[in-house]
């Protein structure tokens, strides 16, 4: 129902307009109507305007000037000045807001928590590690696995060489397995299944003066570049 009414209304409109052009009187009327409407609208929007000419009349000396510039010169400077002060305020506020925003962004870069585990650390004595086993206890704190085989001890990085997830050591299957895309690594760190293109990296491992193992994560050894034969990449025991 509503739709229909609406339609009829729309259709009638243009016809009305046509008719009115035929009849001059009606046209006048309609024009008057429309001007009245306009005035009404203006009043609603800018009720202060009518006051402007009043002020002008009250003050004598300004009459001359007023005549030059269509009568609004006197009033406008005040307006403009106040306008400028508003503008300044707006700019100050804007700058402050933007500044705060970027300040917060900057602050965001330095979180209160330290995710980065220590890069160099001591990892106990070689005898703490059982032969043939993978030690996972340092994974959470330092991000390394320590593995001791019959002759060597080496420290493996816990970062998957595919896309950087953290694999898990599966004790029963005796392999590292990545939960993201299923890459598998042997105990030595060699990749053998899934998409990982390179073996896990090894970290620099040396014996400190007090006989403890010292691991330096800033120095990495990659198998595919032949660096695993480097004497710092393993510890002879």
């Amino acid at each position: 129902m509503d739709d229909q009414k609406h339609l009829e209304h729309e259709q009638n409109k243009p016809e009305d307009a046509e008719r009115s052009t035929e009849n001059p009187e009606e046209m006048k009327q309609s024009e008057e109507n429309s001007t009245e409407m306009k005035i009404a609208e203006k009043k609603e929007i800018e009720p202060k305007k009518p006051e402007v000419p009043k002020k002008k009349l009250e003050k004598g000396p300004t009459k001359k000037r007023a005549s030059i510039g269509k009568g609004s010169i006197l009033v406008e400077p005040i307006k403009r000045r106040s306008f400028f002060s508003w503008l300044t305020l707006a700019w100050v506020a804007f700058t402050a807001a933007t500044g705060t925003f970027f300040g917060m962004m900057l602050r965001f870069m330095f979180p209160n928590v330290l995710f980065e585990p220590k890069q160099t650390f001591k990892a106990g004595y070689p005898d703490d590690y059982t032969i043939g086993e993978v030690t996972t206890s340092l994974k959470e704190k330092y991000g390394v696995w320590i593995i001791r085989d019959t002759e060597h001890i080496y420290a493996l990085s816990v970062v998957c060489t595919h896309l950087g997830c953290t694999p898990n050591w599966l004790q029963n299957e005796r392999k590292f397995k990545c939960p993201c895309h299923g890459s598998g690594f042997r105990k030595s760190g060699i990749n053998f299944e899934g998409p990982a293109p390179r073996p896990l990296e090894r970290y620099k491992i040396v014996l400190a003066d007090d006989g403890q193992i010292l691991i330096d994560k800033t120095k990495k050894f990659a198998y595919e570049k032949g660096q695993w034969s480097d004497s710092e990449s393993y510890l002879v025991v």
Partner: peptide, 28 residues
């Protein structure tokens, strides 16, 4: 979140699972 502990299985948001599936077969 813990950088040294990926959930198992670690799944991307659902709309990216197609991409994750591709990653199984291709280099990143």
């Amino acid at each position: 979140a813990n950088p040294t502990l990926s959930p198992n299985p670690a799944k991307a948001p659902w709309y990216f699972l197609g991409l994750q599936e591709m990653l199984v077969y291709f280099d990143p």
